[in-house]
Design a protein around this nucleic acid. Structure first.
Length: 504
DNA sequence: TACACCTAGACGCGAGATAG
DNA sequence: CTATCTCGCGTCTAGGTGTA
C-alpha cells in the first residue's frame, strides 16, 4: 500500500469520525430543541387559557380605568383579527413571549417578515411583555453582547420607546441594535412598512405622517405614570406563571381595584386640573389648543404640521452689520464684499481647467455685486457655476429622458437635480451668508440658514433661534412636554420620583 | 423649461445623561 | 472619570409639485 493510499484511508477515517461527532451534536441539539418546543407549546397553551380567563373575568371591569388596562383588554380580540397590523404586532400578542420565536405552533402566525435578519419583535402593548425577554443571556435587541437584564431592557429599550396608538390600542416600539443597525446605532423598525429608521424623532414623524398613528410623548404614556392602578396591572401581568395562582390573584386584584378606585378619581381630577393649566398656557398662542391628556402628541407633531400649513412663507431680509464686522464677507483676496439683498454672495470657483479665468470673472462679479434682484443673483450664480461646471463635467440625457452625470454616472430624473448634483463636483461652496459669512453648498441651504438670523423664529421659553418655523415648532413641543410634567408633578406629588431624573 | 418650494429622510456634531 | 449612548439641531440630498 502506497503512502498515498494510507493517507487516503487516514483522512477518510478522520472524516468519518468527525462526521459522526458532528451528527451526534446535531442530534442532541435537535432533541433539545424539540424538548424546548414541546415545553413551550405547553406553556403557550397554559398562557392562552390564562389570558382567556383574564380577559373574560377581569378586564371588562377595568374598562375606562387606564390606557394600560384597556390596551390589554382590547388587544387580544382586535389583534387576532386585525390583518392590517404588521406581523410583529401579531407576534407581540402571543403570550409565548420570546420563546415564541422558536415555537413550532407559532411559526406560521409569527413569521416576522419585517425584520428578517433577526426575526424579533419590537412592538409591544405592555411593558410586561417586553420584560418577558428579560434573561441573563445576551439581549435580544442589542447587537453587542449585553445581558438582557430587566434593568437593561427598561433603560436601554423601554425608557426610550416610541409609543403610539393604533386602533385605540396603545403600543410601543423599542429601539433595537440588530444586524439592520444603521451606523452602529440603535434604530427603529416600522411595524407597518418594514422600514428601518435611525432616529427616534424621524421614526415618530414617520409613524405620524406615513401611517397616521397618534404618537404619544415618551413621558406621557400610560406605562410611565406609575400610579397604583398601573402597578395593579403589573402585578396582574407578572402573575402569568400558574393558572391557580392567577385565579387567586384575580380575586385579589379585584379587591385592589376596589381599593384603588378613589385613586382613579384623584387621577381623573388631576387630569382635569392639568388640562386647565395646559390650556391656560396655550392661551395667547396661535397654536391650536388640545383638550385631551393623551393627545399631547398633537401639541407637538400635529400642531407642528398645522403651523407649517398655516404659516405663510416668510420673506427673509438679511441685514449686514458692518460696524462690528458682523456679516462682513471677504473674497479670496481679502477684499470685503457686500452681499446682495438676499444675503447671498456668490463665490465663483471651479475645479476645471479654466479655473483661473473663471475665478477672474467670479472675482469681478463679486466686486460688482450691487444689490440686484434675487433672480438676478441666482442667474449670476448659475452663470458662475453651472455653466462652467457643465462645460467641464458635462452631462448627457439618456434615451428614456433621464439625465446622468458624466463625472460619476449618477442618474437623475430631473435636469435641475442634475445641475444641483453637478455642483458637488465643482468642489466648492457657492453660497455665503451675508450675515455671518458661513458658506453653504446650496442656495436652498443658505435660505434655510438665513432664517437662523431671523428674529421671528425665536423660542419664547429659552430664547434659542431656529432655522425655520417648523424647527421652532418642533422645539416648542420639547418645552411643552416638560411643562406638562412639571404641572403633573405639582398635582400628583406621587409622580415626582419618577420624573426627578428627567430633563425637567 | 427653469426655478422655487415642499417634504421625507440621512448625516454629522455637540451636549447631556448614564453605565461601568 | 471615561466610554457610550441618545437627543436636538443644522445641513444636505433627492423626489415631487407648482408656477412664471
Amino acid at each position: 500500500m502506497s503512502q498515498l493510499e494510507e493517507l487516503k484511508l487516514f483522512v477518510a477515517g478522520r472524516l468519518r469520525t468527525a462526521t459522526s461527532e458532528i451528527l451526534d451534536v446535531i442530534d442532541k441539539t435537535i432533541e433539545a430543541y424539540e424538548q424546548e418546543v414541546t415545553r413551550l407549546k405547553e406553556e403557550n397553551k397554559r398562557h392562552s387559557s390564562l389570558l382567556e380567563i383574564i380577559l373574560k373575568k377581569k378586564l371588562p371591569k377595568k374598562q375606562g380605568c387606564h390606557v394600560t388596562n384597556t390596551t390589554t383588554k382590547e388587544a387580544a380580540p382586535k389583534l387576532a383579527t386585525d390583518c392590517s397590523i404588521a406581523p410583529a404586532v401579531k407576534e407581540e400578542n402571543s403570550p409565548s413571549g420570546p420563546s415564541g420565536l422558536v415555537s413550532g405552533d407559532n411559526s406560521k402566525t409569527q413569521t416576522s417578515t419585517f425584520n428578517a435578519t433577526v426575526g424579533q419583535q419590537t412592538v409591544f402593548i405592555s411593558k410586561e411583555r417586553l420584560l418577558r425577554f428579560s434573561t441573563m443571556e445576551n439581549c435580544f435587541f442589542c447587537f453587542k453582547q449585553v445581558p438582557a437584564s430587566k434593568h437593561h431592557l427598561m433603560k436601554r429599550h423601554y425608557d426610550i420607546a416610541v409609543h403610539f396608538i393604533q386602533d385605540d390600542i396603545e403600543r410601543f416600539v423599542i429601539p433595537c441594535m440588530c444586524s439592520d443597525k444603521v451606523q452602529e446605532r440603535s434604530h427603529w423598525h416600522c411595524p407597518c412598512c418594514e422600514k428601518v429608521l435611525n432616529r427616534r424623532c424621524i421614526f415618530k414623524v414617520h409613524l405620524s405622517k406615513q401611517h397616521c398613528y397618534t404618537v404619544l410623548q415618551t413621558k406621557q404614556v400610560s406605562g410611565t405614570h406609575r400610579l397604583p392602578y398601573t402597578v395593579m396591572f403589573e402585578e396582574e401581568s407578572s402573575g402569568l406563571e400558574d393558572s391557580e395562582e392567577d385565579e387567586e390573584e384575580l380575586s385579589s386584584l379585584e379587591q385592589q381595584q376596589e381599593t384603588t378606585s378613589p385613586l382613579l378619581q384623584v387621577k381623573e381630577k388631576a387630569e382635569g386640573q392639568l388640562l386647565n393649566v395646559v390650556e391656560a398656557q396655550h392661551s395667547g398662542s396661535s397654536q391650536p389648543q388640545q383638550h385631551c391628556l393623551y393627545l399631547n402628541q398633537d401639541c407637538g407633531m400635529n400642531i407642528c404640521l398645522n403651523a407649517r400649513i398655516q404659516e405663510g412663507r416668510e420673506v427673509i431680509v438679511v441685514e449686514s452689520h458692518q460696524d462690528n464686522g458682523f456679516g462682513k464677507v471677504f473674497d479670496s483676496a481679502g477684499k470685503m464684499q457686500h452681499p446682495n439683498e438676499t444675503g447671498v454672495v456668490t463665490k465663483g470657483k471651479s475645479c476645471s481647467n479654466t479655473k483661473e479665468s473663471i475665478a477672474k470673472s467670479a472675482s469681478s462679479s463679486l466686486v460688482d455685486l450691487s444689490p440686484p434682484s434675487k433672480k438676478q443673483a441666482k442667474n449670476r450664480l448659475a452663470d458662475l457655476n453651472l455653466s462652467t461646471v457643465t462645460t467641464e463635467l458635462s452631462s448627457t440625457q439618456n434615451r428614456d429622458g433621464s439625465y446622468y452625470c458624466k463625472a460619476c454616472g449618477e442618474i437623475f430624473h430631473y435636469f435641475h437635480k442634475l445641475m444641483t448634483h453637478v455642483q458637488k463636483h465643482a468642489g466648492d461652496k457657492i453660497c455665503i451668508c451675508g450675515v455671518c459669512g458661513k458658506s453653504l453648498m446650496r442656495s436652498e441651504s443658505l435660505h434655510e440658514h438665513l432664517q437662523n438670523h431671523n428674529t421671528k423664529n425665536v423660542c419664547g421659553t429659552c430664547g434659542k433661534r431656529f432655522s425655520s418655523q417648523s424647527r421652532l415648532q418642533q422645539h416648542k413641543t420639547f418645552h411643552k412636554s416638560k411643562t406638562k410634567y412639571k404641572v403633573y408633578n405639582m398635582i400628583t406629588p406621587g409622580f415626582t420620583q419618577d420624573f426627578e431624573k428627567s430633563k425637567i
